[in-house]
Design a protein around this nucleic acid. Structure first.
Lengths: 216, 216
DNA sequence: GGTCGATTCAAGCGATCGTTTGAATGGAAG
DNA sequence: CTTCCATTCAAACGATCGCTTGAATCGACC
């Protein structure tokens, strides 16, 4: 097998490939992409350095795989919830849409057990990466659901110019990213806040209010 | 002279030290701290690599100097505007406080000429840096004005629990950082938006609405 | 003119980076 | 048993990293 394969070969337990992904998910999320060496990843995974290039081709290939796996869960969850909301009949309100978006992160944390926070943090970190190549990589991974979501949001806010909706949508993504990566908590004068779940609700309230503002 | 000096020696024009600061301001802001090598900085500045360690002690010392210089302008402007607002008599409203905070960035851009956007981008980037050491460095630089500002904000929103005020204050810092670093613009499906001034106003409107939300 | 301290420079230090190589390893197929 | 192929490994590749060294340069001061 080589890194060009598409079939996971039905690996339920801890393979070399999955352990590299897990370690990279943890370290890329904690330190950022540029500051994390491949050797740090492979040491944490307990495998040889060459295994990265064997399974993923390069460091960037590894990042792409990590992001793809993480965003796969998020996209699926967001799509499913978006389906539920639109299937109910009427046009979903902005408040519901915001809640879906934010709670997908929180829900992931619950569903994935100990891996949940790491997934959330990784995604949050990748959103803020400076490298344009990484940003494009992430944009590719987000795009499948983004279109539907932005459309629903525009329908929910008919009185708002599309440019304003787009801006606030971007603001929501960014703020959620900062929240998930722990960057927001660290901005406070008094260290990281201990209130995780409370901040989730605060984020929903803040964003919902943000979407309620008039044009400007 | 060594890097422990406090007197700029009345250097009006381009010295080695200032050219290193300028180049670092540009590159740290564009690529991030970890991804920027000292050699890239010194090449852009047209000076020798050793000059960095001579004038600033280390790469982190350079970052500290760059951040200090950039935040010096911002802190001064924010403090001055905050003075104006409180000297007017009554308790400043949240909308005014938000406008001060956001417009300080925009104002800096205008006042510093071509360096303005670079200063704004650098600050925005540093806020999102993963390295806890860098985050502490930035927090030290912000703290002088932060206390006053947070206090004014709490007074402006008496019905809101202090924890909620603090959360939304952090959200404002974070969102402004994403906005200034160009990260927000890049999150859109259709590339960086060309509307800089319009997005400034959108940010003010969005944040003002966010502070208007009830407890949650 | 001569001395001194501040500054800049080319060159190189050891360490670490991402990546490559070629030889073991081990299970499945003939 | 033998062949074969996917996988893992230790070892090393050249490049680049942050940082240091020691000599050259230059203006200020006696």
């Amino acid at each position: 097998m080589f890194y060009g394969d598409g079939v996971p070969a039905a690996s339920a337990t801890s393979t070399t490939k999955s352990r590299i992904l897990d370690a990279a998910e943890e370290l890329f999320g904690a330190q950022g992409y540029a500051a994390t060496s491949l050797r740090a990843v492979t040491e944490a995974a307990g495998v040889n350095v060459a295994a990265v290039n064997y399974h993923f081709g390069s460091k960037e290939g590894l990042l792409r795989a990590v992001v793809a796996r993480a965003m796969g869960s998020v996209n699926a969850e967001r799509g499913r919830r978006l389906d539920e909301l639109t299937a109910a009949g009427g046009v979903p309100g902005a408040a519901d849409l915001v809640r879906i978006f934010v709670e997908t992160g929180a829900s992931l944390v619950r569903r994935h057990g100990p891996r949940g926070p790491r997934v959330a943090r990784l995604i949050g970190r990748v959103v803020c990466e400076p490298d344009p190549q990484i940003r494009r990589l992430f944009a590719d991974e987000v795009s499948p659901v983004e279109g539907r979501y932005l459309q629903a949001l525009t329908a929910a806010l008919p009185e708002l110019p599309p440019e304003d909706v787009a801006f606030r949508y971007r603001a929501m993504i960014g703020l959620l990213a900062l929240h998930q990566s722990g960057t927001l908590s660290g901005l406070s004068p008094d260290g990281p806040s201990a209130s995780g779940a409370a901040d989730d609700e605060r984020l929903v309230a803040t964003l919902t209010a943000a979407f309620g503002a008039g044009p400007g």
